[in-house]
C-alpha cells in the first residue's frame, strides 16, 4: 500500500525570518515569536492533511540547522560555519569540550507544547520528532580536550543521553514517529555497535523509528538496517534521487536491497531541484518497484532530503505532488 509523507525541515518562511529578526532586535518577545512558529506549524499540518499525506514532521521551524539549537542544550559550544555536505547551506559546528549533559527532552516538550498551542494535539500521532543521527552529529562535530576518544564514543553517548531521553518522553506523550537524520550513512558504513544502539532505542520507543539517509544511497547500510528491521519498528528512508536510481535499471538493484522491509520510505521527489517531476513517470516507476517489494505492507512516497533546500512555493507544490502520487497509484 502506498502512502505519502514529509519529513525534516521545511523552508523557513518569510514570516518566521522576519519574526526572528524582530525578536533578536528586542522588538517582539518570546511569546510572540512562539506564536509565529505555531502559526507556520498549523499551516504545514493543514497542507499535509489537505494533500492526504499520512505523516509529517513539524517542519523543524525552530532549528537553524540539523544540530542547532540542540547542540547548545546538550552542553556543546557552537563554532564557526561549516558546509553541510555538498550543499550551499552552512551549519554552526558543535564543539564538545566536555561530555554531553542533557537536562530534559526539550525537543519533544516543544513539539507537544506547539501542538497543544494550535489545538492540534489530536494530530500528535501523525507528527514526527526530528533529531540528528548519532553518526552524523559525531562526524560533523569538533571534539576538543579529549572530551571523547573517538567518533563512535561520542555517537554512543549522544544516543544514551539524548536520543533515549527524547524517545522515552515521546512515548509518554503519544508521539509515534521518530526521525533520525543520518545523511552520513550515505557515505560511511554504519558500525555494528550503532546498529545495536538503534535497536535499544526501538525497544524503548513505542512507535516507529525512521532512519533517514540522504545525499546518496548506500546499499550496504540499507542491508544492515534490513537485518534489524524484522524484529523492530525501524524503517529506512532512502534517497533514490541523488544517485539517479529512478530508472528501470535501478529497480532490480534497489528492489533487492529493500525486499526484506515490511515498511519503507522512498525518497523520489527531488528536494534539491525546482523542476517538477512527471507524475506519470514516477507512477510507472513505483508500480514496477512495488512489484519487487513483496514483503512491504506500507510503501511511503516522499522527497529525497529536506524540503528546506527549495523555495517555499516549490516545496508546497512538491508536497501536493507527493499526495497525488500516493493517492493515484
Amino acid at each position: 500500500m502506498f502512502k505519502g509523507m514529509v519529513f525534516g525541515s521545511m523552508p523557513r518562511t518569510k514570516r518566521i525570518a522576519k519574526a526572528l529578526s524582530r525578536y533578536q532586535l528586542g522588538k517582539i518577545d518570546r511569546k510572540q515569536l512562539d506564536q509565529v512558529y505555531r502559526r507556520e506549524l498549523k499551516n504545514l499540518l493543514d497542507l499535509v492533511s489537505n494533500a492526504r499525506l499520512s505523516r509529517s514532521s513539524d517542519g523543524m521551524y525552530r532549528w537553524d540547522d540539523l544540530f542547532n539549537p540542540l547542540s547548545s542544550y546538550i552542553g556543546a559550544e557552537v563554532n564557526g560555519l561549516k558546509r553541510f555536505y555538498d550543499n550551499n547551506f552552512f551549519f554552526r559546528q558543535p564543539v564538545f569540550s566536555k561530555a554531553i549533559s542533557y537536562g530534559g527532552a526539550v525537543v519533544c516538550a516543544n513539539l507537544v507544547d506547539d501542538l497543544k498551542g494550535i489545538g492540534y494535539i489530536d494530530k500528535v500521532e501523525m507528527v514526527s520528532l526530528s533529531l540528528p543521527g548519532p553518526l552524523t552529529l559525531a562526524t560533523n562535530s569538533l571534539v576538543v580536550d579529549n572530551a571523547y576518544m573517538s567518533r563512535e564514543s561520542l555517537a554512543r553517548d549522544y544516543i544514551e543521553k539524548v536520543v533515549l531521553t527524547e524517545a522515552e518522553r515521546c512515548s509518554r506523550e503519544g508521539v509515534k514517529h521518530l526521525d533520525i537524520h543520518e545523511p552520513e550513512l550515505a557515505f560511511t558504513i554504519v558500525p555494528d555497535e550503532l546498529i545495536d544502539l538503534y535497536k535499544r532505542v526501538s525497544e524503548l520507543f513505542k512507535g516507529s523509528i525512521w532512519i533517514t539517509i540522504y545525499f546518496g544511497y548506500n546499499s550496504e547500510n540499507i542491508k544492515k538496517i534490513g537485518r534489524i528491521s524484522r524484529d523492530t519498528r525501524i524503517i529506512p528512508v532512502v534517497d533514490l534521487v541523488s544517485n539517479k536510481l529512478l530508472d528501470r535499471e535501478a529497480i532490480e538493484k534497489v528492489g533487492k536491497d529493500l525486499e526484506s522491509f515490511r515498511e519503507i520510505a522512498l525518497g523520489i521527489i527531488d528536494s534539491r531541484n525546482t523542476r517538477m517531476e512527471s507524475v506519470e513517470e514516477l507512477k510507472r516507476f513505483l508500480e514496477e518497484l512495488g512489484k519487487t517489494l513483496r514483503n512491504a505492507e506500507n510503501i511511503y512516497v516522499t522527497h529525497n532530503t529536506n524540503l528546506e533546500f527549495l523555495p517555499e512555493k516549490i516545496a508546497i507544490e512538491k508536497i501536493k505532488l507527493i499526495g497525488r502520487l500516493a493517492t493515484e497509484i
Partner: peptide, 12 residues
C-alpha cells in the same frame, strides 16, 4: 527566480 532559500542561520 522562485523565491529565497536559506544559506545559514537567518540568512537567505
Amino acid at each position: 527566480f522562485y523565491g529565497p532559500v536559506r544559506v545559514w542561520g537567518n540568512n537567505f
